[in-house]
Simulated assay, not measured.
Amino acid sequence: MDISLLFSMSDRVPALATPSAMHPESWQLRAQVEAWARGRGLVLGDPDTSPLGRARCERLAARVFPAADADSVDLFARWLTWTLALDDTMDHPPLSDSGSAVHALYDDLLRAMRRGHARPGARPLEGALVELWHTTSKSMSRDWRRRFMLHLEAHRDGCAKESVNRRIRHVPTEAEYAPLRRRACGPFLYDLIEPVLGVELPARLLRTPRWSTLADGVADVVAWSNDLASHDLEAARGDAHDMPAVLARARGLDAEQAAAAVADRIADRLEEAWTAARRLPEMLDRLELTVAQRSAAAQVVKALLATPRAHLDWLAESGRYAPAADPAPPRLDALASLR
């Protein structure tokens, strides 16, 4: 499977038709993020020899936020790098098939965030997280910080459930998979849109069904698109936690049919998200939001709706899902990459 199927959808999915813009300082961001990842021990040796080193997270950040403050885009790219480093750790024993090991790791991470410093000799993930959290949370409200922590805990629970499924060789059903994947695909990353843009959304907006349809829809599209890109690597290690594998098992499909079915689901889910976004203004009127709150909502909606195409363009230029023996793809702007 590959992502060419997603690019071929652009004729029938207007939201994917236009290539994403790129932040003008993307190349400087690359050097900054690579230096940070090396300095924190997240990337060791030649970056092109590891999936994390080849991921080029700054490109995804620069595509989601092409006009934001460069320092804020850099911060988002660091969060992406940390999240993928955590994901790589989860993909290997003992965490890959032990829910208790996932909880133990997360206990260490969450305790470090709460006390404000990593333990002596802690793994790089812990120290990097404390630094990122300090930089990000200092300008955000208590409500936002609580929401972010709850999404970290949801991520922990989703990853732990996946680990248990691997151990007992359980393939999730279609009904089980979407909410599980949403939890295991870094839901806290979407909270970071607000500090990157320097805004904060009111809680009463976030509680509405229409906002949930928009936010969850975008998260699902990104997760399922990522599933198409990572399916071959996951299948090689016997992991059935991706949408193609789930649909193939549930419907008795071959690989080509399963990929096409995933593409159809992505198109439908993206349309649901855009429909919810188009109907948001009337809801904002009913909520009687202030001018500043309406502006914040508009900025976050714009970033959310830009994310699926930005992620698709990143998948095409990232080397994260290339087989280990293959060289990284050419680093060209002409090529338009969470799990």
Results as ranks from 00 to 15, higher is better:
P281F: 02
P209T: 08
R38D: 05
C57I: 08
D69M: 02
R286V: 01
T49M: 15
A21G: 06
A273G: 11
E153G: 03
A267V: 04
R147K: 11
V43S: 06
R146G: 09
L253F: 06
K161R: 14
L205I: 00
S100W: 02
A250E: 07
A215D: 00
A122S: 03
A77T: 00
W79T: 07
D48R: 11
D107S: 15
S20R: 04
R204P: 01
R278K: 09
R207D: 14
S72W: 01
A325V: 15
P308A: 03
L253R: 02
W79G: 13
L205Y: 02
R115H: 07
F188D: 02
R181V: 02
M243I: 07
L132I: 14
A31F: 14
A263N: 10
L197A: 13
H231M: 00
L110E: 10
L75K: 00
L214I: 14
E174M: 05
R320N: 04
L129H: 05
D268Q: 08
L332T: 15
S212R: 15
E34T: 13
S225R: 03
T213E: 13
V171F: 05
A277R: 01
L253Y: 03
L132P: 12
D285R: 09
A31H: 15
W79I: 00
E58T: 00
R320K: 14
A101L: 01
W82T: 09
A325H: 15
Q32W: 12
L110W: 09
G238I: 02
R279M: 07
D254M: 07
A17T: 08
L247D: 06
M140W: 11
P244C: 08
G319S: 06
L305I: 01
P51Q: 08
L270F: 04
M283K: 00
S98T: 03
R38G: 00
H23Y: 08
T83G: 10
S10P: 08
Y190W: 15
V300L: 03
G217N: 13
S295V: 02
A276N: 04
D326G: 04
S230D: 03
M9Q: 15
P47R: 08
M22A: 10
R249W: 10
R114S: 13
D11R: 15
D264N: 11
L192E: 05
H311C: 14
D71V: 07
F148W: 15
E176F: 07
A259E: 10
T18L: 10
A223F: 01
A245Q: 11
E317K: 04
A104D: 06
S50C: 12
D157T: 12
L338D: 03
